[in-house]
Structures are given as structure tokens and as C-alpha cells.
Design a protein around this nucleic acid. Structure first.
Lengths: 347, 347
DNA sequence: CTGAAAGCGCTTACAG
DNA sequence: CTGAAAGCGCTTACAG
């Protein structure tokens, strides 16, 4: 078959001996068309090597079923897992979402959003980049495009969000550590510019209070939300005059870093110092030692967000109820066996 | 500002008191327009909250600068790193690529490609899914759309590929192990349906021969290309009557699995058994023990592929020279200290 | 420099 | 069921 000009519905119509209206109706699966005619048209479509021009159709219909997924950091396995959960839903709905990465950069995020709008997206799922301006999604709202926040939300925004119960997750983990006998606790990584951080830290503090941990025995160390940040937090913590014996980490990456830091410091992770992560990424289970972590059901949240945006697109609304996902603590080896106060005080 | 109908160039023209041709020229940055006029138009664009309709423009121009990146497995950090390298180039070229994930599924890949074509992509970078049919990209070739293969290529295809020198990388690693005194070597993970596998295994075998490793001391164990696969390979290997003392792994994920398996088996990775990975993902450096791996310059290959497709789109060709990227062995802890034959024979 | 006109590939009433 | 006609938002010669 030789290279040729792109075939259009006119070529199909000619090939099948019908009008282009008929072809269009077949393309849309209308039941106005006699089955034999439809078959004839489909054969012609194959014949001419036709590729549907969705852009032209969208232009005419002035609507679009293109969906965008804007991810803040694709190299973070957690967000990759989230994307996969969403994709599964879209796949069974027969739509191919376009993924874009903002690399945690608000400027890039603006470019990405503009491009997506120019491309005519019909709906969007966004995990906003750190430091996103409050009005970053104003254009989208104005255009009436359904948007859903995943995992992260923006303070004061009316865009619906799908996120885990971060506060409760942090409380579960902190309580677990306290009940194991730890009386000097730390929170590692993250910074207050993320709502997620405020929620997780808030839960940590609340549980500390409930368990009667003395305020002077609570250490909060901000830091990058990756391995490097975790190592740095751990170093800082151990250098303190009266160091903590356990840490809840902002996320699993930070926890992996803390575990690494412990090894470097010659401490036995789990035994000498308890570490708990957050998110329960796939790797947590296979780490050495296996990481205790707050499971947020990443896949499930992804699916939920996908369903939400699909539904909003169908009903033509930009409003929806927030969804707060259940969490639970998955206890593995990194928070070690129970410890008594005696062990803890020996340093 | 109230919600309103989408603004078009006509609205801008009215607001600015010019014709829509003038607006269009301003939009395209033509120098036919007087600066004051351009400024006036730009102000009007802001006024009416205009969003460029790229679909309409592409339809009229019958060309597109939309670029797709089709990735076979986004949850694999290696491919995520590759995607990021490509994105960097596209970003500085001012284009926002759309990423799609095939999850190593040829059927999904077909859907993704169809969708991308319907959307009117102007160029594509693909890392083909395992088990891709030889004619999977026939439609794209017919349509004259520039395509570049990244990391993986298809046997017999004329689509240009950007990939590391897999054979040489495997030889470097194998030679290193042999020179450290290992005389019984294994190759872990992967299967022959991937050209990459054939190249890496080929290099391994060639180096074994060059170093005088006896054929009966060469073990090849196929397996999944992830951690699980690595653990399984290691188990199988150790169960053999005369087990290998070192393994080159198909990729880093397999190597991490092998390292994990060693710990489970009570062996000290690096000392009791040497492990070398392939790809040198970011995590390799931070692993415990740090993983010796063949660095393929993932970022650089991504950038190269991006430049290639951009250039092809500009010159309107679908042909280009393959690029074979340089590799080098990054020696870390997982292949341990030199060993003598004596140590090796004691089991 | 600017305006009127045609056309990209499709969908959608509207007649027949 | 099918055909002719208009129009989605843009770009592009072509006159002025």
C-alpha cells in the first residue's frame, strides 16, 4: 500500500457509494443506519485506511472527551502508582488519558495547563505542584472544565479533592509508636507549604498529646520529601542532646532515607530506632527491613478520582463532593519489637 | 468575571477594533503587524480571556506539533527517568508532550496509538511493549508520522532507535566479574522476546568466552524483569549443584531482587555473591549495598530521542540514523572485593 | 499593514 | 434511511 493523503469521510463515502452524512452516522454508531449499509461503510473505512480526526469532530461539536492527568512528580513511584489506578478506570471507559508531568514546578504547571486547554481537554485530574498559586486554576474554572484534585488540595479552592485521611493515618502510626513504649518521637520531612503536611503533622501532634508525650520530647524536622531529605532529618535528629527513638516520616521516600541513615550511623533500623512511613508504596513491603507504613490505598484513590471526573464530564458540572479515603497502618519490621522505657533510656 | 462562552479570535477582533486576520497574525507573531497594533490586540486577548484553539489551527494547517511519548511501564523508575530526560528537551523547545502508558500490554498500546493518531500527533517516541507485533506501527508509517524508538527496538523495523550499547555494557560487567576471580557466572532475568535481552545476554556470553569461562559454569536463568524475578532467579541459582558465585542481571530491578534474595538466604551480598545490575537507576547508588551497575546515561538517551523526533518533524522525514549510546560500568559495593579461586571454591 | 473569502474534516438539523 | 448545506475556530493567499 502506497503512502497517500490522509483519508477523510468523503473518501469513505465515495468508496462505499453513500453520502458523508451516512458515514458520519456509522462512525458514531447511530442506529438510524441499516446494518448492511453500516457493514459496507466499515469495509470502506478499512479500504481507505481511515483515521478518525477527533480534532475536527470536537471543533464541530464544541465539546471534548479528552482527559488530562497532571502529575507533580512522575519519578516518585507513589504518583506513578496513582496514575496507574486512574488509567485503569479510563481504559475500561474507553478513553486514553494524556499524562503530563510538572516536576513540582508551578511555572511548568502553568505551561502544561495552557497546553491542555489549547488542546481542548474535557476534564482534568491534577495533583498540584508545590507552591501552586491560589488562582492557578482560575482559567479552567472560567472555562467550565471539570477538575478534580488528587492527593493534594489547595487551601480555599472549591475544586473537589480525592485524598486519604492524612490526619487519621498519622494518628494511627503515632499511637502505635507510643504504645510500643517510645516516649520521644519525631516527625521527619516535608514543609508547611503542603496541606498534606499540615494534616499529617497535625495528626502526629494530636496523637502525641493524647498519649501524653511531653512537648519537649517532640521533634519536628522539616526537609525534602525524598530519600535525601530522610537521611538529613535522621542525622539532625541523632545529633540532638536528647534524641528521639522513633520517627513518623512524611512519606515512604523519607522513611527509606531515614533507614539508610540509620545504617550509615551504625544503628540497626527497627531495633535501635523505629521508623514508620506514609503511603505504603509497593517497595515498602520489599525493603530491608520491611517498612511499616500508613496505607492510603493509592490505587483506590486513583480510581475514585477518575470516576469522579468522568461523572462530572457527563453531567456537565464542575462541582462534586470531596472524597476522604480510609487509611490503615501496615505494621512490618521497621518499627521493631515493643520496647520498655528502660531500653529507651539507655543511650 | 462571569463565566461566558469561549472567546474566539472574532471576539478579540471586535474588542481590538481590527479584523480577525490581524488577530491571527498577531497570534503567530508575524512581523507584518505594527507594534502598536500588536499591543492593542494582546490587550484585547487578555480582556476577553482568550484560549487558543490549537485543534482548529491544526485542522486548518493540516499539520500538528503535538508530540506523544508512549511508555511501556511508568511504574518502572527507569522509564520514568527516561521520560523526564525527554521532557526537558521538549520543555525548552516550548512543546508539552503527552505521555501515555501501555503497561507492557500490546492491546493497550494499540488503543493508545489509535487515540494519539486521532488526536493528530505530529511525532512520537515509543518504547514498545513486550510482545509488540511487527506491524504494530504500520499505520503510523503510512501516515508519514515521525516515530523514534527509545531503549527498545523492533526486529526488522525501519523506525530509527535510540538505545544504549547493551552488548558492550554486558561485556564490561562480565569481564569485571571474571577479572575479580569469579569463574562460575550467571545471567539473571529477562526473556528472549526482547531484543534488549538478546543483546545483553549476547555480550555476557561473548565476554565469558573471552575470559575462558567454561560453558558448564555459565548459568542463564530467565525470569520477570522486576524484583520478584530477581529473587526467583537467585533461589534457582543457589539450588543448583554447583552454583554460580556472581550474576549479571538483566536490569537493576532484577539485581535488587537478587540482593534481597541473598539476604533472605543468609548470604552477605557483595561478599558471598557478587551482583551487577544494568541501567544504573537513581536508586542503585543509595541501595544497601550500593549496586554496581552498567550506566546507560538514561537522561542523555531521552534527550537524544527527543531531539531526533523534533528534527524529523521539522524536516518532514520519517527516517533517521540509529543512535547507540555509550555505556560504562559504575563499580560500587554489590560486586564486593576481589576474590581468589580458593575462596570461590570453598562452599 | 488590513479585510473578505475559502477551506481544513467533521456533525447536525432539515428536507426528502 | 440518505443528501445538501451550514458552521465549529482557525489560517492563508489575495486584493486593496
Amino acid at each position: 500500500m502506497a503512502v497517500r493523503e490522509k483519508a477523510t469521510i468523503l473518501d469513505i463515502a465515495r468508496e462505499a457509494g453513500v453520502s458523508k452524512s451516512t458515514v458520519s452516522l456509522v462512525l458514531q454508531g447511530s442506529d438510524l443506519i441499516r446494518p448492511e449499509t453500516a457493514t459496507k461503510v466499515r469495509r470502506a473505512i478499512e479500504q481507505v485506511g481511515y483515521v478518525y480526526n477527533r480534532g475536527a469532530a470536537n471543533l464541530r461539536k464544541s465539546q471534548s472527551n479528552v482527559i488530562g492527568m497532571v502529575i507533580n512528580d512522575l519519578t516518585n513511584p507513589f504518583f506513578a502508582e496513582l496514575a496507574v489506578g486512574m488509567e485503569r478506570v479510563f481504559q475500561s471507559a474507553g478513553v486514553v488519558p494524556f499524562i503530563a508531568n510538572t516536576a513540582e514546578n508551578p511555572v511548568r504547571q502553568e505551561e502544561v495547563l495552557r497546553s491542555l486547554m489549547e488542546q481542548g481537554v474535557g476534564g482534568l485530574i491534577i495533583s498540584p505542584a508545590r507552591g501552586t498559586a491560589p488562582d492557578a486554576f482560575h482559567r479552567l474554572e472560567l472555562a467550565g472544565i471539570p477538575v478534580v484534585f488528587a492527593m493534594r488540595r489547595l487551601p480555599g479552592s472549591r475544586i473537589p479533592a480525592v485524598a486519604p485521611d492524612n490526619r487519621r493515618g498519622a494518628m494511627l502510626a503515632t499511637t502505635h509508636l507510643a504504645r510500643k513504649g517510645h516516649r520521644r518521637l519525631a516527625f521527619f520531612g516535608g514543609s508547611p507549604d503542603l496541606v498534606v503536611y499540615q494534616d499529617r503533622l497535625g495528626g502526629f501532634r494530636e496523637a502525641c498529646e493524647a498519649e501524653g508525650i511531653e512537648p519537649e520530647n517532640i521533634t519536628v524536622i522539616e526537609g525534602e520529601t525524598n530519600r535525601r531529605g530522610g537521611m538529613a532529618c535522621l542525622e539532625t535528629a541523632l545529633a540532638a542532646p536528647n534524641p528521639p527513638t522513633a520517627a513518623l516520616c512524611f512519606n515512604d521516600a523519607v522513611a527509606f532515607g531515614a533507614l539508610l541513615g540509620l545504617r550509615k550511623a551504625g544503628r540497626e533500623p527497627g531495633r535501635d530506632f523505629a521508623v514508620v512511613g506514609f503511603d505504603d508504596v509497593a517497595e515498602a513491603e520489599h525493603y530491608m527491613p520491611a517498612l511499616t507504613s500508613v496505607s492510603v490505598n493509592t490505587d483506590g484513590l486513583g480510581e475514585r478520582a477518575a470516576h469522579m471526573v468522568l461523572k462530572m464530564m457527563q453531567s456537565g458540572t464542575t462541582r462534586a463532593e470531596d472524597h476522604v479515603g480510609a487509611v490503615n497502618l501496615v505494621v512490618r519490621e521497621s518499627c521493631g519489637p515493643a520496647r520498655t522505657n528502660k531500653v529507651e533510656n539507655a543511650r
